[in-house]
Design a binder for these strands. Structure first.
Lengths: 214, 214
DNA sequence: CGGCGGGCTGAACATTTGTTTAGCCTCAGG
DNA sequence: CCTGAGGCTAAACAAATGTTCAGCCCGCCG
């Protein structure tokens, strides 16, 4: 009775919180709703975690640990490189749907822990892209840091807007494996060839810049 | 006195709501905070709009109208095409910062009006991309609809994650014109050439698909 | 001048919601 | 058996918050 096993009420509460926080955002979720999902009383939630805020932090910590690979040996680096993801990003995209949803939400809600994780993911991605440049897999750029951020946000985008993406594509669940596969195909195409056939857009940008300088 | 002018309390309230809703999300914002920003009493907010929900809808309507181009003749189609944006998207990216922020937030919060606007933007973008294909400006794809969604979400991403992007780039305000310019340069590069030099990622995807089929 | 309608407010109200309190029930250890 | 600690709960509490109410103030119309 000293060590609660993984289906203990405490774990059920945390999982329920993870699910609801990720789906609806922290401030739209009540302790009572979490308690109901976990099949316990609201008071027990506070009994175990102290407060709603502390529960959120615990979810953050759990998700961050998952992302960092604690407990799961997810060292499929070859597949990461092949699919075009840094390890940090890859972990996120490979994680279970609730964890993914929670993370995207956490980034949008803006907790300090989420911010730190975001920075870390950007760092890993930047390093991975730099490696790729050196090896000739990745195009050169004058702004590697900015490009890393752009890349990360672009991969995060479908997670953030999953509701709309699913609706437009007419699918029930964007996290379904087949849907993910179809969707990611298009994203990979964009990352491989771009979407434009010529440099018109780049030229237009240069024109705007020149005009602003004068 | 029949027609309230544009600096009337009613307008001030709506602008304050727009700003706060966009910055913090609807449910983190209180009527009292909006009232304070607008320099009026909480009761006046309800007096003019009926309820917080109705106020949100009015903000939605205002922003949607702005996006649709009501009141502003924003028919700079040449520039749109040159910069690589469909008209709906271009309007959004050109709008004032508070409006942009509000819209991104609205998409994330998921109101019906926002969903309809999202669909409309995707439609406009899909049409614009189809035109581009016909004219040879845009690469062909087997999944035009999916690509339109991907493109839209990718352009929305920095708006959604602006807090993190600004922090990583070390800038105060992502909506500053110079920052926007620097950032969009990298995005345009990605949309023009992609980021990979070879088809390794695409091949990896094909391999995964083949494996799943067997 | 008189009143009246609308913009506007302070205060009160009701509900939601995070949290606290007091105590129940079970079970391991003496 | 008994006792105490910990998981667990119902009920109460307090703060936040959307909303309502009664009425003030001021310019316009009759």
């Amino acid at each position: 009775m000293a060590i609660p096993d993984d289906s203990s009420a405490r774990t059920r509460i945390r999982d329920a919180a993870l699910e609801r926080f990720g789906r609806d955002g922290v401030n739209r979720v009540t302790i009572r709703a979490i308690a109901a999902d976990a099949g316990v009383s609201p008071a027990l939630v506070v009994h175990h975690f102290g407060s709603k805020e502390a529960l959120r932090r615990e979810c953050d910590a759990y998700v961050v640990a998952t992302m960092r690979g604690d407990g799961i040996d997810n060292t499929d680096e070859l597949s990461d490189a092949a699919a075009g993801n840094a390890r940090g990003l890859s972990r996120m995209l490979d994680a279970a749907a609730p964890v993914r949803r929670y993370l995207a939400r956490a980034f949008l809600d803006g907790s300090p822990e989420a911010a730190a994780l975001f920075d870390e993911i950007v760092d890993l991605t930047a390093a991975w892209l730099a490696d790729g440049e050196r090896e000739g897999r990745v195009r050169r750029t004058e702004q590697p840091r900015t490009r890393a951020v752009v890349y990360v946000t672009h991969l995060l985008a479908p997670l953030a807007f999953d509701e709309h993406v699913a609706r437009v594509l007419g699918v029930e669940d964007l996290h379904d494996i087949d849907v993910t596969l179809r969707f990611s195909r298009v994203a990979i195409e964009m990352f491989t060839h771009g979407i434009f056939t010529d440099e018109r857009a780049l030229d237009a940008w240069d024109a705007v810049r020149k005009e602003r300088e004068s």
